[in-house]
Simulated assay, not measured.
Amino acid sequence: MELLEQARAEIDAVDAQMAELFERRMRAVAMVARSKADSGKPVFDPERERAVIAKNTARITDEALRPYYNRFLQQAMAVSRAYQRELLGRGTAAYQGVEGAWAHIASRRVFPFARQMACKTWADVFEAVSTGKAEFGVLPFENSTAGDVSAVLDLLYGHPDLSVCGVYDLPIRQDLLGIPGATLAGLRTVVSHQQALSQSAPFLRAHGFETKVWGNTADAARYVSELGDPAVGAVASAETARLYGLQVLAQGINEDGDNTTRFVVITRTRSEDIPVGEGQRIALLFTVDHKPGKLAQVIERIGSMGFNMESIKSRPLPHVQFEYYFYVQLICPQRAAGQSCRTLLHDLEAPCRTVRLLGVFDHETLCDEEGVTV
């Protein structure tokens, strides 16, 4: 017991020093924010962050602690970015849906300190960002089982004033929720969005539950909470359960345990001179003449410069029958730099009718509030 008390006293002493150092660090962060306000630079500078994390992680002499310190620094950087955005008035993130919807959950995990703005439609999210009512918009872009969200891609194509600044994968785990005191044996009816019910159909059938289609998973949870009937449950997320005062009766009931939704974060374009590093993603929109070999030329030039094409999608070109525009997501090669990106864009001007840099960003998997991948 004496050893435990000694360890706790040491931790308290270190925490007191860290609190003083945290205030000192955040005062310096505020100075950085003022500088970025004057220069118009974006808050997120991935090359600078990677350099700082690498330099400071190397200072840890205990190799076993280095990965933990690396994670500590990543979280410190995220807090610093959030503080800068607040100081710069860049603290609003827009999403489509209601509180507890998957887009809301994604937005809260990407921007935990931002004010969340609910919008009725995806077009309203674009409008909010385009007009400056929100700095960021968080939108579903692709689902691992249902495929592309084509309407969002079309909205991106139709908004040349906006760019993509992040792509995040959110693993979707559907849980069965009920009011406090409800039991799995006592449930009779389950409500949720059609897709959530479909993904959880084997589990629901096995228990003999009647199902009722609802507008979305979060609103289904709200309905169950307000109804107060222990015989009625909802398929939604555990985070939605906390929001509406429900309990989780069964975890991970969706059949596809790997079901994941990819979200894009949009913002107003600031500059195309964005730092690019190895492993980062570049998103491009382009069109080509409707002639043999034109698309192949684009793909060949991308490959010849060492960029790995991670994704390619085609969509009907507005107002031009049976012609298409293309979206590609590329992984930057080793020793990639901003000049590599500019050279690629220049080289693609020849085979492309139009080419547009949609964004440069990191591709991450979202974690829950405790830092655990969900």
Rank of each mutant, 00 (worst) to 15 (best):
V52Y: 13
V355C: 08
I253L: 09
D38K: 12
A9G: 04
D219E: 13
L366E: 08
A238C: 04
E370T: 14
R81G: 05
A76T: 12
I11N: 01
V264W: 03
E226G: 02
T354K: 03
C332M: 05
S192N: 12
R268S: 04
L358H: 01
L317W: 00
R85P: 10
T343Y: 04
T145D: 05
F72A: 15
Y168D: 08
H319F: 13
P171Q: 06
Q280I: 00
D347P: 00
R353S: 06
R268V: 00
R301N: 14
G338A: 06
S163G: 13
D362M: 06
I253Q: 07
G306R: 13
Y168P: 05
T211K: 04
A296E: 15
D15W: 03
G166F: 11
G228S: 03
P112E: 09
A51S: 09
E5S: 06
H193M: 01
K41Q: 13
D148W: 14
S192A: 15
A234N: 10
R71S: 13
F22I: 00
Q334Y: 07
R24Q: 13
A9C: 03
F72H: 15
S130C: 07
Y244W: 10
K41W: 12
V129R: 11
P160L: 11
A58C: 05
R353N: 08
N143T: 05
K294E: 15
P316R: 10
C341A: 12
V235D: 03
A151H: 14
Y157Q: 11
H207V: 00
Y168F: 15
Y68E: 06
A54R: 14
T260M: 00
E47A: 15
Y83V: 10
E349K: 11
V213S: 09
S198Y: 15
G228P: 02
Y69I: 15
A37P: 09
E10I: 02
L348T: 03
L227E: 08
P292D: 03
D256K: 14
G186V: 11
G293H: 04
F111E: 00
R242F: 01
G252W: 00
E47P: 08
V276T: 13
L87A: 08
L357G: 01
G257P: 01
L156R: 12
F263A: 03
F263G: 04
I312D: 02
L176W: 03
A337D: 14
I105T: 08
F307K: 04
E47S: 14
E226Y: 13
A78L: 15
K120E: 14
P140M: 10
A76E: 12
A241C: 07
V372R: 15
A283V: 10
D62T: 08
R90K: 11
L176M: 06
A220K: 04
T57V: 14
V276W: 00
R173F: 13
L366W: 07
L317E: 12
Q195L: 14
R115D: 08
G178E: 02
G338W: 01
R188M: 01
I179P: 09
F286N: 04
V372E: 15
R66C: 05
G208H: 05
L358W: 02
L246P: 06
T261S: 04
R66L: 06
G359L: 06
D175S: 05
E239P: 00
P112Y: 11
V235T: 03
A13T: 10
S35Q: 11
H193T: 00
Q174W: 14
A134M: 10
R315W: 10
E272F: 04
L345T: 06
D15K: 05
D12W: 02
S237K: 06
A250C: 05
V372D: 12
A76F: 13
Q174P: 00
S311N: 11
